[in-house]
Design a protein around this nucleic acid. Structure first.
Length: 254
DNA sequence: AACGTGAACAACCGCCTGTAC
DNA sequence: TGTACAGGCGGTTGTTCACGT
């Protein structure tokens, strides 16, 4: 137990790394591989503590790091994973190849956190207005929606689309999302008099968390998780595999 | 041009965990 | 079993840069 003493040593450089320091660190790791961070200052002459070397390598110098803008897909995935895992940045980063926990954390703090917070406050206002509102199949809103018979894929869709009708067979709730065309046919079917009788006594009183979770169940991401887990596939080296396994454990816990 | 402000990102700090002894 | 250490992680701070006034 206890903290590493290396970072409290005097005479160590702090602040931004120089090109020379980067080069020394990179050369050392290319030769000796990752790990044994404590040896790096001794063997390379770098005036940096081992932890600092590790951080610099993992967050900046690693060759497989993907730099540049975070794509819309990545952003969406980050939001969903954060919803599921909270501030477990390393776990989230484990599902975003080439992205580091630090990068994701920074991106969240400077962009997504505010964004999501804004959506939530907007959401809470709408929620108050719509609380316990009951809809029937005769509702114009319901008929005009293209999401009938599908699962909501985003929080916003959940808010504007009618929720899943009361499910007698839970398995139907896990059916994959249908295309727009299929939606139309579903709409036609569901608006038939036969179905009207019982399928759309809908209560908009549901949990957005569940909507996200069920969304993840349906996602390619989750299917890939299941596939990898069931087949014991571990990506890349041992550490990455171990990280992924932790991730599955976290999901199961949640 | 000078200054203020906020966003983005790099790096540090301190706690926790795993492991060797 | 207890201790010391290294590594890992999340939170926070510091620095740089772009932009508006």
């Amino acid at each position: 137990m206890g903290r590493s003493p290396c970072c409290t040593r005097e005479g160590l450089n702090k602040g931004t790394w120089t090109a020379l320091e980067d080069q020394l660190l990179t050369d050392y790791i290319k030769t000796h591989g990752e790990g044994k961070w404590g040896n790096i200052p001794k063997e390379t002459g770098l005036k940096r503590c081992g932890k600092s070397c590790r951080l610099r390598w993992l967050n900046y110098l690693r060759p497989d790091i993907k730099r540049g803008n975070i794509s819309v897909d990545e952003e969406d995935l980050i939001i969903r994973l954060h919803k599921l895992l909270g501030n477990r940045w390393s776990l989230i980063a484990g599902r975003l190849p080439g992205r580091t926990d630090n990068e994701i954390k920074n991106y969240w703090n400077s962009n997504l956190g505010k964004k999501v917070k804004g959506e939530q406050s907007k959401h809470s206002i709408e929620e108050k207005q719509k609380t316990k509102t009951k809809l029937t199949n005769k509702s114009p809103t319901l008929k005009s929606s293209s999401a009938i018979g599908t699962k909501a894929s985003t929080c916003r869709e959940v808010l504007v689309a009618p929720p899943t009708p009361k499910v007698e067979n839970p398995e139907t709730d896990l059916a994959p999302a249908t295309s727009v065309d299929e939606d139309s046919s579903n709409l036609a079917a569901n608006t038939s008099e036969e179905n009207n009788a019982h399928n759309f006594d809908i209560e908009i009183d549901f949990n957005v968390e569940k909507a996200f979770l069920s969304d993840i169940w349906d996602s390619d991401f989750w299917k890939q998780c299941q596939f990898e887990f069931e087949n014991g596939i571990m990506e890349g080296g041992g550490s990455v595999g171990a990280k992924n396994f932790s991730f599955y454990e976290e999901i199961l816990k949640d």
